[in-house]
Nucleic acid binder design. Structure first.
Length: 733
RNA sequence: GCACCCUUAGCUCAGUUGGUAGAGCAUCUCAUUUACACUGAGAGGGUCGCAGGUUCGAGCCCUGCAGGGUGCACCA
């Protein structure tokens, strides 16, 4: 800044002779900030002592940022800039996410377009291709984060596949195995037959479907089902133990009956999972392909048999239907049962919700598979305790209830994924017996139980297994003591949709690995929808690329436009008009500066202090005390995470009090003959200007820093490290 | 079915501990060689979803109801 001479000249800098043009300044200003080194807390001046840390939720490195990212980056940057100006030793750790499953899907779509398929590729080659694709997109994503003005410490940037991240994730896996918190088991999992991988319970969505609901004669019973194609192997008939209609049938009783492919022996089971109100109150079970049935089979130690293969086709047990896709087989099976006189009736319009893959909407086919699971209950208990003790608070507060609700209803977490793009699971598996064990050093070759050859697990971890440890991993907690200054972090700011997927896992891993919660405050922002409140999606064509808005209106306008009127946890309808309005605001501030500089021409260099009372008129003293009331109010709002209110109040003051009232009234004084009134007015205008510019800096960093460059102030620094306006002792109230 | 949220101006939404109903956009009128290419002054517009309750006082607290949204679980 020293080489910039314009501010030393008494004339109005030339820059102010034309409207503010964001495009001219933003790249240069960002460079100035970055070269100053102040993004890195280690380089901040001495007054910055107490750490304030945010770990950036690493954006997916598989494409462009969307406006939701722009909102997140803005919120985080507001907190960081505010705290930095207040004198905190601020650290904001940027990152990039390889985003396992999600990126692989993006890449598979690309392959599909090229007429290729991952199922015909060598996994190693596929991995290499996706890596190259990701690294290329990582650069695009980072450039967009910079364009948003993010004052994060790039020297500490982490990628979720960095070698130390992978190594540490492996160690956690081993540690959890040794502690009995990770186990390998053949359990029912959510299987997506399109992507050919299992999914966790948070990676499925439910979709309403209308299907026929069939009633079949099953020996002396009538059973109801929407899925006749799974019924080939059904040999258990289940009813509620208290159902008086079926009191004559006893647990374990065997019944001979005629079924799809001939006579079978069915066994009566009594279980409380049965809803007496539903259907006939009797059902047969298919443990291999239904979670509830699996639970019943577990409780009663029943046989299970696979009916449907991993690509969604019927197995030989289906007899003449073997090899058919289930949708194709269903009507034919019903036809056969009808021919045998076993079809009782059909409800044509049965409305139910079926789980689907959250990415491709393919119906989830539950399957029993040997996978690695995390035992959630003991971990969830700790997380519940920590949240109940107030160690983590939520903004807005109602997410606390949602967090606790989920933690109280948690299922064991399947962490195995049958995809290549991710962190490999460092384990050895015996295909001959049930042996499986983590093997970080890659030393196990033969099974200690049955002496057969072991094979390396080809699965990768669920992305959330590593990203759940992100607050620790991103601070390189395995290396050196640096992380201890910044952990636990202060705020985790992320989308409200991650309240299940991510937040609980981070709390759990933080408590498990180092005994401390990973953050004290969780700030959750809502979705950014289009102007009519509809969710942005590629298929609707209403996706807004933040870069387009930046090009049109400038980053500052986008930032404050995303903040005003946007309460935490609530979805936002984004209209371009609003952004445009804030572009005008940037220019208003620009012109205010021009007016104040013109009015102050010929004065000595100014200081940052409150003007001396002795030279101020009573009227101006009152103006300054009103300004101080705004400072106190806005500061309080920011501290309470009410950024939408702070931004609006400052905006309103600047435009409708400072510009419309104070400046209008000042014109007569500046032109008037009363020298002391003029001087008082000049000091007052200047002081109000610098205070407003400071207050706006977290929200609109570029225009405020640009203005700051041109202000005739002695001993000034970059605005980003100037002191936040403070009402010191003795200053006018 | 359960949980959570929402319902305030034409639209999008604020409204902090209960103390006279707010902003932006839109509309209308007027001004404007202006610090302002992106401006100003002013106006209209609300039974705060409905019904009760607590209170000196309720948009805010309590109960019930209705409508909308989101999430979770499903019920074979």
């Amino acid at each position: 800044m020293a080489e910039d001479k314009t501010y030393q000249e008494p004339d109005i800098p030339k820059a102010f002779l034309k409207p503010y043009n964001a495009d001219e300044h933003e790249t240069r200003i960002y460079k100035l900030w970055q070269e100053s080194g102040f993004f890195n807390p280690d380089n901040l001046p001495d007054r910055h002592k107490k750490p304030f840390t945010i770990v950036m939720p690493p954006p997916n490195a598989n494409g462009n940022l969307h406006v939701g990212h722009a909102l997140a980056i803005t919120l985080e940057d507001i907190m960081i800039r505010f705290k930095r100006m207040q004198g905190f030793k601020t650290l904001w750790v940027p990152g990039a996410d390889h985003a396992g499953f999600e990126t692989q899907i993006v890449y598979e779509k690309k392959l599909e377009k090229e007429g290729r398929s991952r199922f015909k590729m060598d996994p190693q080659d596929l991995y290499k291709e996706i890596l190259a694709f990701t690294l290329e997109n990582k650069g695009t994503m980072e450039a967009q984060v910079r364009a948003l003005g993010a004052s994060c410490d790039w020297s500490r940037e982490k990628f979720t596949l960095d070698p130390d991240v992978v190594a540490e994730t492996h160690r956690t896996f081993k540690k959890m195995y040794d502690d009995g918190l990770v186990y390998r088991g053949s359990r029912i999992v959510n299987w997506c037959s399109k992507h050919a991988t299992s999914l966790s319970d948070v990676e499925t969505e439910s979709k309403e479907k209308i299907d026929p609901f069939y009633y079949f004669k099953y020996g002396p019973f009538t059973i109801g089902t929407a899925r006749p194609e799974t019924k080939f192997g059904d040999k258990y008939v289940v009813m509620h133990p208290e159902d008086t209609r079926y009191a004559e049938y006893k647990q374990g009783q065997q019944i001979e009956l005629e079924w799809i492919n001939g006579p079978i022996t069915a066994t009566v089971i009594k279980d409380e999972a049965i809803d007496m109100e539903f259907g006939t109150g009797v059902m047969t079970i298919t443990p291999w392909h239904d979670a509830v049935d699996f639970g019943i089979a577990e409780r009663h130690k029943l046989d299970r048999e696979q009916i449907i293969d991993m690509r969604g086709k019927l197995l030989p047990i289906a007899g003449e239907f073997a090899g058919m896709k289930i949708t194709e087989a269903r009507p034919k099976i019903v036809e056969k049962l009808k021919a045998k006189g076993l079809l009782v009736k059909v409800d044509e319009k049965y409305v139910h919700n079926v789980p689907v893959c959250y990415k491709c909407e393919t119906a989830i086919e539950p399957q029993i598979l040997p996978q690695w699971f995390v035992k959630m209950q003991p971990l969830a208990e700790k997380a519940i305790k920590a949240v109940e003790a107030g160690e983590v608070v939520f903004q807005p507060d109602n997410y606390r209830k949602i967090f606790l609700y989920w933690m109280n209803n948690t299922l064991d977490w399947n962490i195995s994924r049958q995809i290549v793009w991710g962190i490999p699971i460092p384990a050895k598996i015996c295909d001959s017996c049930s042996f499986a064990e983590p093997d970080l050093e890659n030393t196990l070759t033969t099974c200690p139980k049955c002496k057969n050859m072991l094979r390396a697990d080809t699965d990768t971890f669920d992305t959330w297994f590593s990203s759940g440890q992100w607050p620790l991993l991103s601070l390189s907690y395995s290396k050196g003591a640096d992380w201890k200054s910044f952990y636990p972090t202060d705020v985790m700011e992320t989308g409200s949709d991650l309240i299940f997927k991510w937040i609980p896992r981070m709390v759990i891993f933080g408590l498990y690995l180092v005994g401390k919660v990973p953050f004290h405050t969780v700030y959750l922002h809502g979705l950014v929808n289009d102007a009519s409140g509809k969710k942005m999606s590629k298929s609707k064509g209403n996706v807004i690329n933040p870069t387009d808005l930046i090009v049109k209106y400038g980053t500052d306008a986008l930032r404050i436009g995303l903040i005003v009127g946007n309460t935490p946890g609530t979805d936002l309808s984004l209209s371009e008009n609003k952004i445009k309005g804030y572009k005008n605001f940037g220019n208003k501030l620009w012109n205010i500066t021009r007016f104040v500089l013109t009015s102050c021409q010929g004065m000595e260099k100014m200081t940052l202090d409150v003007p001396n009372k002795d030279i101020l008129t009573d009227e101006d003293k009152k103006l300054i005390s009103e300004l101080h009331a705004l400072v106190a109010d806005a500061t309080h709002d920011i501290e309470e995470y009410r950024f939408y209110l702070a931004a609006e109040k400052i905006y309103h003051y600047v435009w409708h009090t400072f510009a419309d009232v104070i400046i209008e009234a000042s014109k007569a004084k500046i032109a008037g003959a009363d020298i002391s009134a003029k001087q008082s007015c000049q000091y007052t205008l200047f002081y109000i200007l610098i205070t407003c510019v400071k207050l706006l800096h977290p929200f609109m960093p570029f225009v405020t820093e640009t203005i700051w460059e041109h202000l005739p102030i002695a001993d000034k620094q970059l605005l980003m490290i100037e002191k936040w306006p403070v009402l010191e002792e003795g200053s006018m109230k």
